[in-house]
Design a protein around this nucleic acid. Structure first.
Lengths: 248, 248
DNA sequence: TTTGTATATTTGACCAACAAATAAAATAAT
DNA sequence: ATTATTTTATTTGTTGGTCAAATATACAAA
């Protein structure tokens, strides 16, 4: 809300030079006008350190300075609005906003449209996250956390073979304990793809792998009394069925 | 390109029921029509397992069945096109496509507009990735990889204090060695924010931390002759300056 | 069968207009 | 003079229509 006027003025100058250089923005090789306007705006925001609250020129002003129609500008702004980069209310105009860093990821996390390689990558990334969180877990765990974990384990119908929901609940609690909300949300986004890929692997392989891994109660015990390295080893064993299907 | 006709037919039926239920889509509480159309389309793609190559109804058809203007539909489609969920060429119509899973993330990874908490989360996440990649590194490393790492280290002007570029080059090679392209690209996206946050931390703290950590040559040696746990411990020590600023 | 042509369709881009909301200005009331 | 109310003007949201460019499709010609 601060330096709005100077910002508006500077964006217009920039646009003038751009427009002048191109003598009227024209669609490029298979790149639509909307694509170009979107990129121009994002680049400009970044280069000039636009911050949430800063106000933007109106749609018409942008359209005129870029020498494109208001519709094209609106299509580009619609994209930025979806990502949360800008917000707009009638008459109040548009302002920069704080995007949800994972909003874009959430919209494409669909096992049916992602490529096979990408799906495998996601599967592996969740394993990497599980193995990498140990430091944070030990640095930030509390007695309360351990208690909750023990409750989760105690409520499980079978310690030998927890259901998918129980498995998820347990691991999500672990992520929570890192105190890193983005990290937690990130893994929740990965989960559906993780499950999807694992199912496919098990179909492809001969039999279902024997569940000879360390169970949740074991992990809690190590978390309670063991060391960081103990925990990592325990987690690696716990994840063995998943490492196995990718022959790691 | 396969079941296009049935898909078209079914999407239209769905839209009819939706439109009928709402008796003409109307803007909801601070939710634009474009938002709603975007969500309707994405939900529909997911629920009906749309795959890349499947063809979609035309803009006009969607607009009519949803009882909104073509402009609103185009703004929604513009968003999906940005994410890579759909592609469209004149007369050939629109088809489902393979989105870049990190495209949305790339567009919002801007230190100036993300919240302070989110920036901290990103900083921590990179540390988690570095600590979690050990299994993959040891499972997939090759002699060639080790050679390249040694070359990178040898080319460094000072082993004691590698430049930021040298540091990045070394670590990026490590990510490459995991064979996980998404993982590699992910960390490259995190890097600018990581550097940005680290700079802010160092300004806030008293002095620059003494560089008494394990250097790249040490990491390579462990990677060559040590165990996975050796490497993790070495990496933890190598990252100590970063763990220190967050008091971990 | 192959090639070339005409037609029709679909997306890309533009323009004009109005509705809804509200900031700003003008006016009225105290 | 200050406050409250009304009016005005501006900005985004949404609609409708038009035109251009590209290209499937059908058809005609070789």
């Amino acid at each position: 809300m601060t330096q709005s006027i100077e910002i508006v003025r500077s964006i217009l100058e920039k646009k003038n030079t751009m427009a002048a250089k191109k003598k009227g923005l024209k669609p490029l090789n298979s790149v639509s006008m909307t694509d170009r306007v979107e990129n121009i705006l994002r680049d400009y925001f970044q280069e000039n350190a636009f911050k949430p609250g800063d106000s933007l020129p109106g749609e018409l002003e942008i359209a005129e300075k870029l020498d494109v129609s208001r519709n094209v500008v609106r299509e580009a702004l619609s994209r930025l609005r979806m990502l949360g980069i800008i917000e707009s209310r009638t008459r109040r105009g548009m302002i920069m906003a704080r995007p949800d860093i994972l909003g874009g990821l959430e919209r494409v996390m669909n096992p049916f449209i992602l490529g096979k390689d990408t799906l495998n990558d996601v599967f592996e990334m969740r394993l990497i996250l599980e193995m990498g969180m140990a430091e944070f877990l030990f640095a930030r765990k509390t007695a309360q956390d351990i208690e909750e974990l023990e409750e989760i384990v105690a409520s499980q119908t079978s310690i030998e073979e927890p259901t998918k929901e129980e498995e998820i609940r347990f691991h999500t609690k672990l992520y929570d304990m890192t105190g890193n909300e983005t990290f937690t949300r990130f893994q929740i986004l990965l989960l559906p793809v993780f499950e999807h890929v694992f199912k496919k692997y098990r179909k492809g392989k001969t039999n279902t792998p024997p569940p000879d891994h360390i169970h949740h109660d074991g992990l809690v015990k190590v978390l309670k009394t063991g060391t960081v390295n103990d925990f990592r080893n325990a987690m690696q064993t716990h994840l063995k069925p998943y490492f196995d299907v990718i022959d790691l």
